[in-house]
């Protein structure tokens, strides 16, 4: 099963994207394997709605484990199964809290093994200097590394917000040469393109 990892800085909308994308693919209930650092994955099935209430939050670093959602995409006459993995957000500096560092280390390890990397960037904050969600060094390093591995896509998220247009411009400029798709995890805008791209890679 191919593994498709969703990563980005804290609070750019990774968890919402994963669940929203699952919903878009027509899933009511998702089977999620939660892989906490240092422990074996535990699987459970929850409804997308419940999962959203539980995991999507305005507080940064809400996700402290890898949440692997099993999904299916129709390919030819059958279906192809793949995993969409929600990760703990990346920070610009070295996080103080050990638990967050461990969760982030897990994200780093997961990126190395991923078949496809979906890098989420907050378009609404991209044009703002100094915002926590604004693009920074860690985003560039992710781009440089992931690009070498092959499957790599930048999702400019939060396109439903007013400042996002300007941010998208900036993202396109800063990440020239990388594929960028504008999306909104909330309104599911742009998901068609994402699906097409993912379909190609799995």
């Amino acid at each position: 099963m191919k593994r498709c990892i969703v990563l980005g800085k804290a609070n750019v909308g990774k968890s919402l994207f994963v669940l929203s994308f699952a919903e878009y693919l027509g899933v009511q209930k998702v089977s999620v394997t939660i892989e906490e650092p240092g422990r074996h994955g535990q699987s459970r099935t929850v409804s997308v709605r419940d999962a959203m209430a539980q995991w999507v939050s305005d507080t940064p670093h809400q996700t402290r484990a890898l949440h692997a959602v099993q999904l299916e995409l129709p390919v030819g006459k059958g279906v192809k199964r793949f995993e969409l993995v929600d990760t703990s957000g990346l920070s610009e500096g070295i996080p103080r809290e050990t638990a967050i560092r461990r969760a982030m280390a897990q994200t780093l390890a997961a990126v190395r093994e991923a078949d496809l990397v979906l890098h989420i960037v907050d378009a609404s904050a991209a044009a703002q200097e100094g915002a926590v969600e604004a693009i920074g060094e860690v985003d560039f390093q992710v781009a440089h590394f992931a690009q070498m591995k092959g499957g790599y896509l930048i999702l400019a998220n939060k396109m439903d917000l007013p400042t996002a247009k300007e941010g998208l411009e900036r993202i396109r400029q800063e990440f020239a040469g990388h594929p960028v798709i504008p999306v909104s995890a909330r309104t599911k805008d742009g998901f068609r393109e994402v699906k097409r791209y993912v379909w190609r890679w799995i």
Partner: peptide
């Protein structure tokens, strides 16, 4: 090293690369 707090995520990715 990262878990010990000796590298930032950006540095870790740079090393990976």
């Amino acid at each position: 090293l990262f878990e010990q707090g000796k590298l930032s995520p950006a540095e870790a990715f740079s090393l990976f690369r």
